[in-house]
C-alpha cells in the first residue's frame, strides 16, 4: 500500500544456499493463494463456452446490467473518494472529541453482513423524512438505490485506506509548507494530496471493486428488476436461480474481465499522467 522505501525496494540477490528454503517456503505459501484463484477461473472457463458468453452479451438485459454496473460503480467510487479523503484526513491529523466512536462507527459497514446493510437501508427509507424524500425523488427500488447501496459499503473501505495513507505521510512537509506561508488548504492541495496519490488510487480500486461485487444490499434495497436495477452480480444470481449455470458463469467471467480492465486502466492513468506530472520534480 505504501511506497516501498529504497533499501527494501532493491532487487534481492540470492547470496547463498541458505536463502533458498526461505524463498521456497514463502513462494509456496503465497503461491497457493494465487493457484487457488487461477484454478477457479480455469474451472469457470471449463464450465462455459464462448457461445454462452456471446449469448450473454447479446441479451439486452445483460448489456444493461453491464452498463449500470460500470456506471454505478464509478459514481460510487467518486463519491467514496470525496468523502473518504476528507474523513481520512480528519481522522489522521486532527484530535477531536468522539474520535474513537467515529472510528468504531466506520467499522460497521465493513463488519456487518451485506444483507443487513440492505435491510437497514430499506428500513431507513420507511422513516418519515426519508420516505418523503423517496416520494419526491424515487430512490428505493430505483437506480439511485443501487449507488447508495454500493456507496454505503465501499466508502468505509475508502475512508480506512485514506486514513492509513495520511497516517503514513510524514506531516513534516505539510508543516514546512505552513511555515512557508501556505494556508491549511493550500498545504493540503499542494503537498499532502499529491503525496497521497497511491493511497487515493488504492482507495479508488478497493471502492470500485467492492461496488462491483456488491450484491446482498442491492438485492434487498434495490430489488432485481430487469432493465432497471439489475447489475452484474444480480444477473449471476438470477441466472443461477433459473438453473442457467453456464450463463451465470459467463456473466461472472464478464465481471472478471470488466474488473481487470477498469482496475488496470486506473493503475496506468493513476500512476503516471494525472498526478505524476504535477508531483515529480
Amino acid at each position: 500500500m505504501s511506497e516501498p522505501n529504497a533499501a527494501v525496494g532493491q532487487p534481492h540477490l540470492m547470496r547463498g544456499r541458505s536463502d533458498v528454503p526461505f524463498y521456497a517456503a514463502f513462494s509456496i505459501l503465497g503461491g497457493t493463494y494465487v493457484f487457488l484463484i487461477v484454478a477457479m477461473i480455469i474451472a469457470d472457463l471449463e464450465f462455459t463456452t464462448a457461445s454462452h458468453v456471446l449469448n450473454a452479451l447479446s441479451s439486452p438485459e445483460i448489456r444493461y446490467a453491464i452498463k449500470l454496473s460500470l456506471i454505478s460503480c464509478t459514481i460510487s467510487t467518486i463519491l467514496s473518494l470525496w468523502v473518504g479523503v476528507p474523513l481520512g484526513y480528519l481522522l489522521s491529523r486532527v484530535q477531536f472529541p468522539g474520535k474513537g466512536a467515529v472510528d468504531a462507527i466506520l467499522d460497521i459497514p465493513i463488519v456487518l453482513p451485506p444483507l443487513v446493510i440492505g435491510l437497514s437501508l430499506l428500513i431507513l427509507f420507511q422513516t418519515p423524512f426519508f420516505k418523503a424524500l423517496d416520494d419526491a425523488f424515487p430512490i428505493t427500488y430505483a437506480v439511485p438505490s443501487v449507488i447508495l447501496a454500493q456507496f454505503s459499503v465501499a466508502c468505509a473501505f475508502a475512508v480506512r485506506t485514506m486514513r492509513i495513507t495520511f497516517d503514513q505521510i510524514n506531516p513534516r512537509a505539510e508543516q514546512v509548507a505552513l511555515t512557508l506561508g501556505c494556508t491549511r488548504s493550500q498545504a493540503f492541495w499542494m503537498v499532502v494530496l499529491p503525496e497521497a496519490r497511491r493511497g487515493i488510487l488504492t482507495a479508488a480500486t478497493l471502492a470500485w471493486a467492492r461496488s462491483l461485487g456488491e450484491f446482498g444490499p442491492i438485492l434487498i434495497f434495490s430489488g432485481a428488476t430487469r432493465m432497471r436495477t439489475e447489475v452484474l452480480s444480480t444477473t449471476v444470481f438470477l441466472e443461477l436461480s433459473v438453473g442457467n449455470i453456464e450463463a451465470a458463469v459467463a456473466v461472472s467471467l464478464l465481471m472478471i474481465a470488466a474488473a481487470v480492465f477498469v482496475l488496470t486502466l486506473l493503475r496506468v492513468f493513476g500512476s503516471e499522467s494525472a498526478f505524476g506530472k504535477a508531483v515529480e520534480p
Binding site: W189, M190, E195, A274, A278, P281
Partner: peptide
Amino acid sequence: MLRQFYPGRINGVWLAFLG
C-alpha cells in the same frame, strides 16, 4: 518534495478533482 507555486499553473490534483 514541495514545489514552487507558479501563478497561472493549474495544480494536477485540482485538475483531477475537477475531472
